[in-house]
């Protein structure tokens, strides 16, 4: 192509300045939209409450309600009007009430945690003899399970629901007794849910069929 002076050439459809505008315009439209940023978390508004399981103030009875769930009886229903007497040596001694209770909690016996008072709600006691209401059970658990209670206090054991950001809402923590039966606290094995159905992995059912066939 010949490099000649511009004079005498037909005027191009777009002048150079127009081209610049077009290029700049298209570059601008391609640039990232400046993302808005939501404000930082404010001061704490929400509260952290610990769920209170029914188990703390009532026991299951042998009767079922219309939904097939065991009817719960408040401890005070019996304990407010009759003296519990003395603790049996083992759960085998429980014939009339609390029959069938399974205790698998190390070497602990009834008196390790429970205290018998005539009349009123049954209470618990700490190792130093201080009486506790059953609602304060976590203090009792904590005196033996220190590291677990430390982890719980820092939100790394026991789970929670609600808000991580307490400036936006509240949070509910589980109680020790929500997950662990204090009489046999080991977490019972359970069946896993939602087996994955990966496209290339045979299901457990197919695998068992293949190994039998």
């Amino acid at each position: 192509m010949r490099h000649g002076p511009c004079e005498g050439r037909p005027v191009p459809f777009l002048q150079r300045s127009d081209l610049c505008l077009v290029v700049c315009g298209s570059l601008l439209s391609c640039a990232d939209r400046p993302r808005e940023v939501a404000p930082a978390p404010g001061p704490q508004q929400g509260a952290t409450t610990v769920h209170e399981p029914e188990k703390l103030v009532s026991v299951e009875s042998a009767h079922l309600d219309s939904l097939g769930k065991p009817v719960r009886v408040r401890c005070a229903t019996c304990h407010a009007i009759r003296d519990a007497g003395v603790f049996p040596e083992s759960t085998d001694g429980l014939r009339e009430f609390h029959a069938g209770l399974v205790v698998k909690h190390g070497p602990l016996s009834c008196g390790s945690c429970h205290v018998l008072l005539s009349g009123g709600e049954p209470t618990l006691h700490l190792s130093d003899g201080t009486h506790l209401m059953t609602q304060d059970t976590m203090r009792l658990c904590a005196q033996c399970h220190g590291p677990k209670f430390r982890d719980y206090s820092h939100g790394t054991h026991g789970g929670m629901t609600g808000y991580w950001d307490l400036s936006k809402g509240s949070r509910t923590r589980n109680h020790c007794v929500d997950c662990h039966d204090p009489h046999s606290p080991a977490f019972a094995p359970s069946r896993p849910v939602l087996p994955p159905r990966d496209r290339f992995l045979p299901s457990a059912h197919e695998r068992s069929e293949r190994s039998h066939g």
């Binding site: 939501a38 978390p41 054991h157 026991g158 789970g159 929670m160 609600g162 808000y163 991580w164 950001d165």
Partner: peptide, 16 residues
């Protein structure tokens, strides 16, 4: 989580 709530998987975890 951008609305301040906990993720669904965390809320579902039975052991924390």
């Amino acid at each position: 989580t951008r609305a301040g709530r906990l993720p669904a998987c965390l809320e579902a975890c039975p052991t924390g």
